[in-house]
Amino acid sequence: MGLNDNELIQRCQTGDMGAFRELVQKYQSKIVWLAFQMLGNYEEARDVSQETFLRVYRALANFNLNNNFYTWVYRIVVNLCIDILRKNKHNSKPLSLEEVGDVDAQDLPAEQYVEKKELSAKVQQVLRQLPPLYRLILVLRDMEGLSCKEIEQIVGCNHNTVRWRLFRARQIFKEIWEKQAAEHPDEDWSIADFGS
């Protein structure tokens, strides 16, 4: 039976490297995925995730167990991603999920698998046109499924700011998606039956 976050952290604080390994294993996919959605570059997402875990390792001794571990980790990732985006270091080359190793998608039938890949690439294409702060809110709320309260803690904004950004992000995403569909009528941008 797996230990919960607080038990793992307590063991890490006593110097148990195995517990830290479990923590990394538990959160690495989420961290890599979030960084990938923010940066659109797998190599940088991987570097950012490793830097995140290094920072976590350094600061874990002083971590207050009353706080949420994952919101703290997400906050570190988000800050690192925003730093990179501000420095404008990232290459605008979105990569497919294959490089990350999408096991779920590989389990799908071949046709659906290809569809999902294409859809993911299109979503990436649209997401990358959103301003980083709007993209972040959209990824956290709609892709990660976090609540507005949790997003407030991660982003460090108040409730109204989060909702306003979410409102604008959904508007912009819809507009860009429709624009892309109009510009590329040969490609299948229709989303009529997807997930509804």
Binding site: W33, D102, D104, V123, W177, F194
Partner: peptide, 12 residues
């Protein structure tokens, strides 16, 4: 619909 698409692309 765009929201459904985003939700379908959960963490792999």
């Amino acid at each position: 619909k765009p929201r459904n698409i985003l939700q379908s692309l959960k963490t792999p």
